[in-house]
């Protein structure tokens, strides 16, 4: 972009971004197969992954905490659809973000940051499911950009729906 533009770097201040910390913030794994003594083995699991995101400003300037929330539900596909396991993971990171224009900060925090965190989440989910005695679950890559757009659309929709009432 800079090439095409040809403009020198100092025109727009350099965007600085740094991961200061990353961590499991909260985790819950409920292994119903083990708890209820269900027949494991050759069941067909139906896995659903729910993702939600959260970002908040910290008291220190330029610092933000971004949390990705994953909820993985595995159900028995055939028959009674009882839950096989339920995994919830809040994985967060503290980011130092500088010089991102105000209007771009929101998408930056909810697209770029989660993108950085995702590989770790993926590994944890894989490990935990394997440790629970299931085949390791490798979550498909999440397209955070698409996710963001969808959410924007959903909100606009919701706002439109809400308008006439007001």
């Amino acid at each position: 972009m800079t090439d095409a533009n040809g403009a020198p770097a100092e025109a727009a201040p350099q965007i600085r971004m740094q991961v200061l910390a990353q961590y499991v913030r909260d985790m819950s794994f409920e292994n119903m197969v083990a708890q209820k003594g269900l027949q494991g083995g050759d069941v067909q699991p139906d896995i659903q992954v729910q993702v939600s995101l959260d970002a908040r400003k910290r008291s220190v300037e330029h610092q933000y905490e971004v949390i990705t929330k994953f909820k993985v539900t595995s159900k028995n596909k055939s028959g009674s659809a009882e839950t096989l396991f339920l995994l919830e993971l809040d994985y967060g990171g503290i980011f130092h973000v500088e010089n991102v224009p105000e209007d771009q900060l929101h998408p930056f925090l909810l697209i770029e940051c989660p993108r950085l965190l995702f590989p770790f989440v993926r590994r944890i989910i894989s490990d935990v499911t394997r440790d629970g005695g299931f085949p390791p679950l490798n979550v498909d890559t999440v397209d955070f950009l698409a996710l963001y757009r969808m959410e924007l659309a959903r909100r606009a929709e919701a706002q439109k729906a809400a308008q006439p009432v007001q």
Partner: peptide, 14 residues
């Protein structure tokens, strides 16, 4: 409700 946005995932289940 929090001021920061919350996104509900594309693969969201029930």
């Amino acid at each position: 409700p929090q001021p920061t946005p919350e996104l509900v995932g594309a693969e969201a289940g029930e």
